[in-house]
Amino acid sequence: MNELEGNMTHPDSEVLAEFRAGLITGRHGARISAHLAACEHCAGLCDQLAEISALLAVVPAPAMPEAVARRLEGALAAEAAQRDDAERIVGDSSRDGTPSPRPRRRWDFRLVALRVLAPAAGVAVLAAGGYGLSRIGESSTVSEASGSAASSAATAAALPQARAAVPSSAAASRLGAIQAHNGLQIVTSQTNYLRATLRQQLAGEMKRYAEGAAGPLRPATAPVKGCVLRVTEDTRPVTVKLVETARFQGQPAIVIVAASGRHDVAWVTTPTCSGSSDHVLATTTLPGTYAS
C-alpha cells in the first residue's frame, strides 16, 4: 500500500491483485484506476492476473490413479459392510421380542464389541491403503492389500498382511513416479563420467535409470537434498529426474539431472556439495529424455 505515493510509482502486484478483487476502494482505489489508465506495464500485469484465473479454470483435472480409486472403493466397501453388520445386529435384537435372555445378551455383547472395534478397523484400512499407494502404477499388490483390508475390515490381521507387501526393489519403468512417492532417491552408480563424453554417457545412464538398471536406490541424505536445491536454484522451474553418486574423471562426484522445459540439464558436483556450498565440476544440457 505504501508505494502508491502518486501516479508515478507502480503499485506492486499484490496491490493490483487486491484492487482487481475489489478489496481496494475509495481514494486509494481511484488512484490505482488512474495509474492503470496511464501505465501500460501495470495494465499488462492486470491482464496477466486475469489470465491466471482463466488458466486455473481450464486446467484439466488429473484423473484419480487406479490404485487410489481401488483403495478408496475398498475403504468405502469396508465402511458399508461394517454399517450393515451393525444394523443387522440391532435389527435382530429388537425383532427378538422377549425370548430367552441368553441370545440377547450375546447380541448386546457383539454390538459393544463392534463399537469398540470400529476405530481400530479404520486404522487398519488406512495403513493398508498407505502401503498400496507407495507402489502406484503397479497393480497386483495394491488390490491385494486393499482387498484384504476390505474383506476383513474389522480384524487387525489386515495390518501385518499389508506390511508384508512393502515393495522390495524398485520396479523398472515408473521410477519418476516412485521418486515422487518415496521422496528424493539417490542412485549409486558405477559410471565413471569423462568430460569429453559426458553428454553421451548421461544419455545412456538416463536410459538405464528408466529401466531400473542404473544402480541401487537409497533415500537422499540432507546434504544431498540441499545440494539439489542449491544447484538447481537458477534453472527453476525444474523437475528432478535423477540424482546419483558416481565418478567424474575418476573422482567421486554427485550427478544431478533435471528437466527444464524441453531439455534436461545435468550438473556434476563434488561429493561435498550441500545446501551451503557447491562446487560444480561440469554442466551440460541434454534433449529431454521423454521428448520422443
Binding site: 490413479p65 515422487a180 537434498k225 536445491l229 533435471a258
Partner: peptide, 12 residues
C-alpha cells in the same frame, strides 16, 4: 521446496 521439484505425475 524439494518436493516441488520432484515429478508428481506418473505420466511422462
Amino acid at each position: 521446496a524439494l518436493e516441488a521439484l520432484l515429478a508428481h505425475d506418473p505420466d511422462p
